[in-house]
Computed example of a mutant assay.
Amino acid sequence: MKQLHKKDLFGWSEFNQERNLDFHSVLWVREQGNVLIDPLPLSDHDLKHLQALGGASIIVITNSDHSRDAANIAAQTGAKIFGPAGEQDNFPVSCEHWISDNEEIVPGLIAYQLEGSKTPGELALILENTTLITGDLIRAHIAGELCLLPDAKLADRDLALQSVARLANLSAIETVLTGDGWPVFKGGSKALKSMLEA
């Protein structure tokens, strides 16, 4: 796993040839139990690294299309899986907890429910006020420039833009770690506002 912009954050990626971009997963290392977000399959190297960092206690899935390898990793680590409340009736993975809007999942990690994306109630996560972790709706196909999921995949573009505006108003966001595409490590709030203006 790669060190991200903070000492307690790590990530690993997988290149998707069909979309010509990287998919990403995040590990937040914390004394009270590590949190994995949208975990892709782990290589042997990354699994050993995860174990060395204390394993995982919670896996957060932002939307059903990002369930990825969560069930397998949960079986390996004993982690509990948390999913979006908006998809509770049809989620592809068994979850121990369903996350609602504005819920503090663990201290320092707040969930925001997004509307208008391709799945109902997709989650975005705010970590310690300054780092936004996204699933599908907010992405970056070009380095340094955020964009929305393509219109053809949106359930409601206006609602999607309202959801992004809500996040853009959180002026403390410095970093955006996208589930798909490039991360934005500096000026995250500004990048969100620029996306809305475009």
Rank of each mutant, 00 (worst) to 15 (best):
D180Q: 12
A52Y: 09
S189W: 00
V164S: 05
K80Q: 11
K193N: 07
V184T: 01
F15K: 00
V35W: 08
L42M: 15
N20F: 14
D136M: 10
L127F: 06
I99W: 00
T131Y: 08
V93Q: 05
G11P: 05
P92L: 09
N63F: 08
S64K: 11
Y112G: 00
A172E: 09
D8H: 07
A70T: 13
K190G: 05
S25Y: 11
E174V: 00
N16E: 14
I73D: 10
I61H: 00
Y112P: 01
W182R: 09
S163R: 04
I173H: 01
L123S: 04
Q113A: 11
G54Y: 10
L40M: 00
A198C: 08
E174M: 02
V164R: 08
Q51L: 14
A140I: 07
V35G: 06
L149P: 00
W98Y: 03
P120K: 05
H5L: 09
E174F: 00
G188E: 04
E14A: 09
A52R: 07
N169R: 06
T175W: 11
V176D: 13
E96L: 13
G108F: 07
L137G: 13
G83P: 01
R68H: 06
H97S: 05
F10C: 08
H49I: 14
T175Y: 06
F82Y: 06
L50G: 06
K7Q: 13
S13W: 01
A74N: 03
T175F: 06
A124N: 13
P120M: 12
D69E: 14
L159I: 09
V93M: 13
P39A: 03
L159M: 12
E31A: 01
G108N: 06
C95E: 15
P107Y: 14
K2P: 02
D101L: 05
V35P: 09
I37S: 00
Q88W: 03
S171Y: 08
V164T: 10
K193W: 07
A75W: 01
L196I: 09
G187I: 13
Q17C: 03
S194I: 12
L42V: 14
L192I: 01
V184F: 03
G11S: 07
E174P: 00
E18G: 00
P41N: 12
P150L: 13
G116H: 06
N169Q: 15
L4N: 11
K153I: 05
G11K: 04
L137W: 09
P41E: 12
A79Y: 04
D44P: 08
R166N: 11
L40D: 02
A191H: 15
N90V: 08
E103M: 12
E128N: 10
D151T: 15
H24M: 03
